[in-house]
């Protein structure tokens, strides 16, 4: 099918199989390899991307369903502050879960701000529960997420 969508602010038109995974479109067709595949079944969150502002596992999203949508991957704009918080807290160890974590952290931090909610630790844990990390024990990641949500833009 002809697929039209916006990726990281750029309008694209591609010819793809409708059931091709968004993950494969991004990684293989468009060579944006910051989005990682950890499990291929929506369990680990390493392939998290934003579709119309909502975080999804790109391994579960067929290309047909992002037609007309705005897709943002870790290569997109707007992640700078979250990245800085991750660096400062040493929240990236092996780094393979990091892009997905950062995508989810950004969405959560923006939601806290939008809803005027004081970001809390339990809330951060819930928000990041779909992103598995095996290196850190999550402590540094949660600290980075709280920093990111507390800082003002």
């Amino acid at each position: 099918m002809k697929l039209q969508f916006t990726l990281n602010g750029e309008r694209l038109e591609l010819d793809v199989e409708p059931l091709r995974r968004l993950l494969d479109v991004v990684r293989d067709d468009l060579a944006l390899t910051g989005t990682k595949e950890g499990c291929g079944e929506g369990e680990c969150g390493a392939c998290s991307v934003l579709v119309d502002g909502v975080v999804v596992n790109s391994c579960l999203v067929p290309a047909s369903q992002v037609d007309g949508c705005e897709v943002v991957t870790i290569e997109g704009a707007g992640f700078e502050r979250v990245r800085q918080c991750f660096l400062e807290q040493g929240a990236a160890q092996c780094g393979i879960c990091t892009p997905g974590m950062i995508v989810m952290t950004r969405a959560w931090a923006e939601r806290c701000r939008r809803e005027g909610r004081e970001p809390g630790l339990d809330d951060a844990r819930t928000a990041l529960a779909g992103n598995l990390c095996r290196c850190t024990g999550y402590g540094a990641i949660l600290r980075a997420a709280l920093d990111a949500a507390k800082e003002r833009p």
Partner: peptide, 27 residues
């Protein structure tokens, strides 16, 4: 029928389900 894909996309990937036809209703 394909909706949000949380089940069927995994089934397709692993080959546990091999449908001849899929109707995507997400839109």
């Amino acid at each position: 029928v394909l909706a949000g894909g949380t089940d069927l996309m995994v089934e397709l990937r692993t080959g546990r389900t091999r449908p001849e036809r899929v109707v995507d209703v997400w839109k």
